[in-house]
Deep mutational scan, measured.
Amino acid sequence: MGFKLLSKLLVYLTASIMAIASPLAFSVDSSGEYPTVSEIPVGEVRLYQIADGVWSHIATQSFDGAVYPSNGLIVRDGDELLLIDTAWGAKNTAALLAEIEKQIGLPVTRAVSTHFHDDRVGGVDVLRAAGVATYASPSTRRLAEVEGNEIPTHSLEGLSSSGDAVRFGPVELFYPGAAHSTDNLIVYVPSASVLYGGCAIYELSRTSAGNVADADLAEWPTSIERIQQHYPEAQFVIPGHGLPGGLDLLKHTTNVVKAHTNRSVVE
């Protein structure tokens, strides 16, 4: 069995187990497998329904001669939608809004960016022009300005110390501490036991640490421990890039980060 097929099978099995364990909360999309990078042309966006009122959005972007996937989250909030992270750029984010209108038909009224990198804030200006209120932590807003990236308009308070959590509509926002970046936030959907790890969490097929220019490698494993301790009931975990899975993604990420750190020390 090929690795790609095995990865998709694991996603399907995880979703099936969740649907059985929580039949009222989960209505997993039966329309197909989780979209992969090879299936999404740059400039297009796919939506994948995880649970009743919960979707991931998947886009792709060219970077350094390669094409990478990027995940975000959409959560229903009454007759409105909360968006977590842009679709990595203005063109993708405009396509995301169009796809949401086509498939869901509810307005996106608020959006949260989970850290300051372009795959999370690139497209904020498109959201703002569409009347979406954009939010991020003060740290993310400051770092985005320093980096020359787009800056969300509103500040999220109460997320300055490791372990801080605040309720934001249908989700809980959690600051686990520094990891992929010093400002990275985690998003949890309690009604569906869905954990969105953003770039602080890796997919299972990833074996290298990737972009760690703004990471705190020493603190990252401790931050992941905080996530595990705060959300032990999480059933569906979405990484910032690639295929979702279960809580095993947290341990896998820790292993990859520690291996990278150990290699760096040896070198």
Rank of each mutant, 00 (worst) to 15 (best):
M1E: 07
M1K: 02
M1F: 01
G2R: 05
L5C: 01
L6Y: 11
L6S: 10
L6C: 07
S7K: 06
L9R: 08
L9N: 02
L9M: 03
V11S: 08
V11W: 09
V11I: 06
Y12H: 15
L13M: 02
T14W: 10
A15F: 05
I17K: 11
I17M: 06
I17V: 04
M18S: 04
M18H: 15
M18N: 01
A19N: 04
A19S: 03
I20P: 14
A21H: 12
A21I: 05
S22L: 06
L24E: 08
A25H: 15
A25V: 09
F26Y: 09
F26L: 05
S27W: 12
V28P: 03
V28I: 11
D29M: 04
S30C: 11
S31N: 02
G32E: 06
E33N: 14
Y34P: 12
P35R: 05
T36L: 04
T36H: 02
V37L: 06
S38W: 08
I40W: 06
P41D: 06
V42H: 03
V42D: 12
G43Y: 04
E44L: 09
E44W: 06
V45E: 11
R46Y: 02
Y48E: 04
Q49W: 12
Q49K: 05
Q49V: 10
I50K: 09
I50A: 10
A51T: 02
G53N: 08
G53A: 10
V54M: 07
V54L: 04
W55C: 02
W55A: 08
S56M: 01
I58H: 09
A59G: 05
A59S: 11
T60G: 06
T60S: 11
T60K: 04
Q61Y: 05
Q61N: 06
S62E: 10
F63Y: 15
F63H: 15
D64S: 05
D64P: 15
A66L: 05
V67T: 12
V67R: 08
Y68M: 05
P69F: 02
P69D: 05
P69E: 05
S70D: 13
S70R: 00
N71Y: 04
G72H: 09
L73H: 00
L73C: 10
L73P: 00
L73N: 09
I74E: 08
I74V: 05
V75D: 03
V75I: 15
D77W: 04
G78Y: 12
G78M: 09
D79Q: 15
D79A: 10
E80T: 13
L83P: 00
I84M: 14
I84Q: 00
D85S: 03
D85T: 00
T86M: 09
W88L: 00
W88N: 01
W88M: 01
W88D: 01
W88H: 02
G89E: 12
A90D: 15
K91G: 12
N92D: 09
T93N: 14
T93V: 01
T93E: 05
A94M: 09
A94F: 04
A94Y: 14
L96R: 00
L96S: 06
L96H: 00
L96T: 13
L97G: 02
L97T: 01
A98L: 11
E99H: 15
E101M: 01
E101V: 09
K102G: 10
Q103Y: 15
I104M: 09
I104E: 01
I104L: 07
G105K: 14
L106D: 03
L106S: 06
P107D: 14
V108F: 00
V108I: 14
V108Y: 13
R110V: 12
R110M: 14
A111I: 03
A111H: 12
S113M: 01
T114W: 00
H115R: 00
H115T: 00
F116H: 01
F116Q: 11
H117R: 00
H117G: 00
D118R: 11
D118H: 08
D119F: 00
D119A: 15
R120H: 13
R120T: 05
V121I: 15
G122P: 14
G122E: 14
G123L: 02
V124E: 03
D125Y: 10
D125W: 15
V126P: 14
L127H: 00
L127I: 13
L127M: 03
R128G: 11
R128Y: 15
A129L: 15
A129E: 11
A129W: 14
A129C: 10
A129Q: 06
A129K: 00
A130F: 01
A130V: 09
A130N: 15
G131C: 01
G131P: 03
V132I: 01
V132F: 12
T134E: 12
T134V: 10
Y135I: 01
Y135H: 01
A136K: 07
S137N: 14
P138D: 10
S139M: 06
T140V: 13
T140P: 02
R142Y: 08
R142C: 02
A144N: 14
A144D: 09
E145V: 13
E145T: 10
V146E: 11
G148L: 04
G148N: 13
G148T: 06
G148D: 12
N149I: 01
N149D: 13
N149Q: 00
E150S: 03
P152K: 14
P152F: 13
T153D: 00
H154V: 09
E157I: 15
E157P: 09
G158E: 11
L159M: 04
S161C: 09
S161I: 07
S162I: 15
S162H: 01
G163Q: 13
G163I: 07
D164T: 13
A165F: 02
A165W: 14
V166T: 07
V166H: 14
P170A: 09
P170S: 06
P170T: 06
P170Q: 05
V171H: 01
V171T: 15
V171N: 00
L173G: 10
L173H: 00
L173N: 10
F174T: 07
F174S: 12
F174D: 07
P176Y: 01
G177Y: 10
G177V: 03
A178D: 13
A179Q: 02
H180S: 00
H180D: 01
H180M: 01
H180C: 01
H180T: 01
H180Y: 00
D183Q: 03
D183C: 01
N184Q: 12
I186C: 14
V187N: 03
V187A: 10
V187F: 01
V187G: 12
Y188L: 11
Y188S: 12
Y188A: 09
V189N: 06
V189I: 10
P190R: 09
P190S: 06
P190C: 01
P190T: 10
P190N: 02
S191N: 10
S191C: 08
A192D: 03
L195P: 01
Y196Q: 06
Y196L: 08
G197E: 02
G197A: 08
G198L: 03
C199R: 02
A200P: 05
I201W: 01
I201L: 13
I201Q: 01
Y202P: 05
E203C: 02
L204P: 15
S205W: 10
S205N: 14
S205D: 07
S205K: 02
S205H: 15
S205Y: 02
S205R: 13
R206M: 13
T207D: 14
S208I: 13
S208A: 10
G210F: 15
V212Q: 15
A213P: 12
D214G: 11
D214F: 03
A215Q: 11
A215K: 11
A215G: 09
A215H: 11
D216N: 13
L217A: 09
A218D: 14
A218P: 07
A218G: 09
W220K: 08
T222A: 09
T222M: 12
S223F: 14
E225W: 08
R226F: 02
R226M: 15
H230I: 11
Y231D: 11
P232K: 15
P232M: 10
P232G: 09
E233P: 05
A234V: 12
Q235F: 15
Q235C: 15
F236C: 13
V237Q: 03
V237H: 03
P239K: 04
P239V: 11
G240C: 01
H241P: 08
H241G: 02
G242P: 04
G242R: 07
P244C: 13
P244H: 13
P244M: 14
P244G: 14
G245V: 06
G246C: 09
G246W: 08
L247S: 03
L247R: 08
L247T: 05
L247C: 15
D248M: 02
D248R: 08
L249Y: 05
L250W: 12
K251W: 03
T253M: 02
N255G: 14
V256P: 11
V257Y: 00
V257S: 06
K258S: 07
K258E: 04
T261D: 03
N262K: 12
R263F: 01
R263S: 07
R263E: 04
R263P: 04
S264L: 10
V265N: 11
V265W: 08
V265L: 04
E267M: 10
